[in-house]
Design a protein around this nucleic acid. Structure first.
Lengths: 140, 140
DNA sequence: TACTAATGCAACCACAAAAGTTACGAGTGC
DNA sequence: GCACTCGTAACTTTTGTGGTTGCATTAGTA
């Protein structure tokens, strides 16, 4: 599997849910569709639940559902929910030896944070309903 | 160390070089500054050389130098040189079982590619000279 | 109550990616 | 020839992550 399979799994699941938002899905069903394991699905979807994007219910008729309208869930919400930050600022965590290094590190951190802000801003312009653009309601 | 230590190492090194672009640096010096290993430095900087951002010279007075002006090296150049793609489109490489899945996968791929394009565009707006804004030429 | 089906979670294993390390060949200047 | 540097291959160690198993908990249903 690829590096950001979690993001991919999240988007696929949310895309499916957006297509039929009333339907309650179990982690086993989702795992089947994604070709993975129910526990892995619960791990990833658990993050989305913590972020308020999904709700889950235990018990006999339990499963997963969107916590709000698909139009109100943006890619930025998903990205932040998974808290996989694009930017890791410092190569070594110890304090830099020289002043130049110290200032350079601050500058690089500032620049990368700016980059990440603009990435998030771009992500916030696309929502889950746009990811899913299927006209037919029928599933296969 | 963090996940994207390569990007971080590249930016720190380029930042230093931009501050004093005539100075030839050895991988040992750079490794000392970065708190890592000369071979690791050569690995990462080798990618930047392949992309035409740096030049290296063997032998007694050898080392590394910027291949062109710091103003002409953007963060996009560095990002692309390291070819660590932000986006991995499909969670499983096999063909989707249902039509909905197939269309969803295509859509997600398209959206993520658009996101990456806009990220690269943003990165191309910042160059190495901007990363390094130290007025003093003295080193510590 | 008993049974079944679902999440929640912890503990592990397996695999892959990456850093770190060692070693050596090849070029370059003294 | 010697010292110094990059280039690269091979290996080890570390780390991240998916996968797996097991079990407690919750909820519906007979």
């Amino acid at each position: 599997m690829k590096r950001n399979s979690r993001l991919s799994l999240a988007l696929h699941t949310l895309g499916h849910m957006a297509a039929d938002s009333k339907h309650m899905r179990t982690s086993a069903d989702i795992a089947d569709h994604a070709g993975t394991n129910p526990v892995v699905v619960r791990r990833v979807l658990g993050k989305l639940r913590e972020a308020g994007l999904l709700t889950s219910e235990k018990g006999h008729a339990g499963g997963w559902r969107l916590a709000r309208a698909a139009q109100d869930i943006t890619l930025a919400d998903v990205y932040l929910a998974l808290d996989e930050r694009l930017v890791a600022s410092s190569p070594n965590d110890d304090v830099p030896t020289c002043v130049v290094e110290h200032r350079l590190q601050n500058k690089i951190t500032a620049v990368m944070e700016e980059i990440e802000r603009s990435l998030i801003e771009r992500l916030s312009k696309t929502n889950i309903a746009e990811v899913q653009d299927i006209p037919e309601p029928s599933h296969g």
